[in-house]
Simulated assay, not measured.
Amino acid sequence: MLDLKNLSSEINLKIQQVKDRETLESLKTLYLGKKGIITEAFKSMGKIDADNRKNFASELNIIKSNLLDQINSYQSKIELKEIEEKLNSEEIDITLPTKEIKKGKIHPVSQVIDELTCIFAEIGFSVAEGPDIENEFNNFTALNTPEHHPARDMHDTFYLDENKKTLLRTHTSPVQIRTMLNNKPPIKIIAPGRTYRCDSDMTHTPMFHQLEGLHIDKDINMGHLKGCLDFFLKKFFEDENLEMRFRPSHFPFTEPSVEVDISYKLENNKIVVGKGDRWLEVLGCGMVHPNVLKNVKIDPKKFQGYAFGVGIDRLAMLKYGITDLRSFFEGDLRWSNHYGFDANDVPTNYRGLSK
C-alpha cells in the first residue's frame, strides 16, 4: 500500500522546484496523468482491506485536492510572469511618429468586371466561368470555326502541344460551349475572364480580358439582342441618350452577325462617348449559328439565341480615359493610384459589387 505521508512530502518538495510551464506540466503528468502515481493509487484501492480503504481514500483525495490547488496557483503565477516578460520585451515608444498606412486601389479591370456583372444581373444574366487552358474543340471546332480559319494559326494562338489540341483560350466563348454541354435551355449567362492571343501594341496585349454573353431559349430574336445591348451600353456609359447602331459583319459562330457601334465625338483630343456624329466599334454579336447548337446537342429547330463579346479592358479605356492598354498589366503603383478606385469612391450604382 502506498505511503501517503511520504507521497505528500514528496509532492510539496517537487512543487517548490517548479520554475516554468514545462516543469509544472511534467509534475501534473507524474501524479495526475493516466498512469500517474495518484491515479494508479485510486485504481489499486480494491486490493486494500475494507477497514483501511475508507481512510486511505479520504487521505488520498485530500492530497489530490491540495495538489490541484497548488498547480492552479502556480499556473496563475507563471502566466502572470509570462505576461510581464512579454510586456517588458515589447515596450513601445509612444513619442515615435506613426507609420504610414497605405490603402490599396481597385484595379480598373476589376472595377469594370464588377460594373458589368451588376448591369447584366439586372436583366437576369448569371456568371459562368471556365479554365484558361482549353482544348481545340471547345475553343474552335464547337464554335463552327473552319479548319483553315486564320485564328487557328500559330501566330494568333498560344498552343501548348505540337498537335494543336491544347491551348490558351483565345476568347471566353469556350465557357458558352461548356455551359451548353452541361445544361439544358433556357440559358442566360455572361462569361468574364482572361484570354490570350499573340499580339502586342497600344491597344493589344498577349493577355487581356473579355466578357461573352449568351442567351438561349425559344423564340429569341435580334430584337432581344438589340434591347439587351442598348440597356447595357446606356447603363455602363451612364448616358440614356447614347446612340447605338448595328453594322453587318461575319463571325463563324453567329448568323447573322453584326458589329455594334456607339456615337462619340472628340473634345481636346479625348473621346467623349454618347455624343457627336462619329461612330466607334465596341463589340461583336449575332444570333447563335445553328451548327454551334448542333455541336452541343441542342436542337436548333426548338431553340435559338444570341451571343455577344466585348473587351473589358477596352471598355475601361473608353470610360475612364486610359490611352495605353499595356499600362494595365505593368504593375506601376503610380498608375494604380491614379486610375484605381477607392472602395468607398466607386460609382453608387455598382458599390454593392465592389470588393
Rank of each mutant, 00 (worst) to 15 (best):
C198A: 10
G130K: 08
K188C: 05
E147I: 15
G213P: 13
S126F: 01
A191L: 07
R169P: 05
K235S: 13
M202A: 15
F253Q: 10
M222K: 11
H224M: 12
L160V: 05
L225C: 14
P252H: 07
L160N: 03
I177P: 04
F237V: 06
I216F: 00
M222D: 04
E129C: 05
H155A: 14
D156K: 05
T203P: 06
D219S: 15
T203I: 13
H149D: 11
L168M: 14
G227Y: 06
S173T: 15
F231S: 03
K226D: 02
T141K: 12
C198E: 03
H148R: 09
E162W: 03
H148P: 04
F253L: 12
K234V: 02
G223W: 03
G227A: 15
E162L: 08
T141A: 13
N221T: 15
K188R: 15
F208D: 02
A128W: 01
D219V: 12
D217H: 09
Y159P: 02
K234L: 05
M207W: 02
D201N: 14
Q176C: 10
T141P: 02
V175M: 03
L168V: 03
L168T: 01
G130I: 14
E255V: 06
D217N: 15
R178P: 01
L242N: 00
D132A: 12
C228S: 15
T157L: 05
R178Q: 14
L167Y: 03
T195S: 15
M207L: 10
M244K: 04
D239C: 12
M202I: 09
M180S: 06
P252T: 14
K235V: 00
L168G: 00
I177F: 12
D199G: 07
E240L: 11
P252E: 06
N144D: 11
F120E: 00
N139W: 08
R245E: 04
P146G: 13
H171V: 11
A151G: 15
T195G: 00
S173V: 10
D201G: 09
S200V: 06
A121F: 02
D153F: 08
N183V: 07
I190P: 01
S173Q: 12
I189Q: 03
P174M: 12
P186A: 11
G213E: 03
T205P: 05
E255L: 06
R247T: 12
V127S: 01
F246K: 10
R152L: 10
Q210S: 10
F251T: 14
Y196V: 02
F232K: 04
H209L: 11
E122A: 08
K226A: 12
H209A: 09
G193H: 04
S200H: 12
A121Y: 00
C198P: 01
F232Q: 00
E240C: 02
F253K: 11
F208G: 03
N144F: 09
Y196M: 06
P256Y: 01
I187N: 08
D161E: 00
E212S: 10
D161L: 05
M154R: 05
G223T: 15
D153V: 05
